[in-house]
């Protein structure tokens, strides 16, 4: 590991930190989802990431891509709701984009995040402004690409992505939802943060913390 690349240990640390932050915020995510959805987002994600921790212990992955594919398979099998295939597809596409690489530089990292976001768009058919996780992911990917193009380190690329995702999640508060169960609520969704955007910001912050810890 160097300042200019991330490795498998980072990928594993990201997932462990994601599991921790999702577990800590389980009730907060349930409350957000209860306001405009079916209330199961926190519980479902917590179950999914807890299962990832077990898999990481029992079958330690050898590459970043293998780490993300393990996460994808587990989330798709254990989450149950829409978040399973959406996060699962994000991690699957990111793993595919990273191929066999064991050292992830800034450009490959940004490409991986973009592939993840494109996967969520393809699977969920949502656009920016629909009050979904895309509203966190798209600004995060834009910020990551800008940072990578400007020559930032992978840790700095992740920090930029996390900050943009957090702003994007906050920006879902005033929106009317156009996808998922919240779309049935019309204007009643205004004033509530989208749970998927909120969890996306948490998970991308976990990536940045793992990147900072390894830098």
């Amino acid at each position: 590991m160097t300042d200019s690349s991330l490795d498998t240990a980072w990928a594993v640390d990201w997932l462990r930190r994601s599991a921790a932050v999702v577990s800590e915020n389980r009730m907060a995510l349930i409350e957000l989802d209860r306001a405009i959805g079916d209330g199961d987002h926190g519980e479902n994600l917590d179950r999914g990431f807890s299962a990832i921790l077990e898999k990481l212990d029992s079958e330690p992955p050898l590459t970043p891509a293998a780490t993300f594919k393990l996460a994808a398979m587990t989330l798709m099998s254990k989450v149950g709701g829409a978040a399973g295939p959406l996060y699962g597809t994000a991690f699957l596409r990111m793993g595919t984009a990273m191929g066999e690489a064991v050292e992830i530089d800034s450009a490959l990292l940004a490409a991986g995040l973009a592939a993840a976001r494109d996967g969520v768009v393809a699977r969920g058919k949502a656009e920016v402004g629909d009050k979904t996780m895309i509203d966190a992911w798209t600004p995060a990917v834009d910020a990551a690409i800008s940072a990578a193009d400007a020559g930032a380190s992978p840790a700095a690329v992740l920090a930029a992505a996390a900050a943009a995702a957090e702003s994007g999640a906050v920006a879902t508060d005033p929106l009317i939802a156009h996808k998922g169960r919240a779309s049935y609520l019309g204007e009643r969704a205004i004033g509530h943060r989208d749970p998927g955007a909120a969890s996306s910001a948490m998970i991308l912050r976990a990536a940045a913390q793992a990147g900072g810890a390894s830098a």
Partner: peptide, 14 residues
């Protein structure tokens, strides 16, 4: 329903 479609699509992608 919706996420069943997404899970099936994901299986094919996998």
């Amino acid at each position: 329903l919706g996420s069943a479609v997404m899970t099936a699509e994901s299986a094919l992608e996998f």
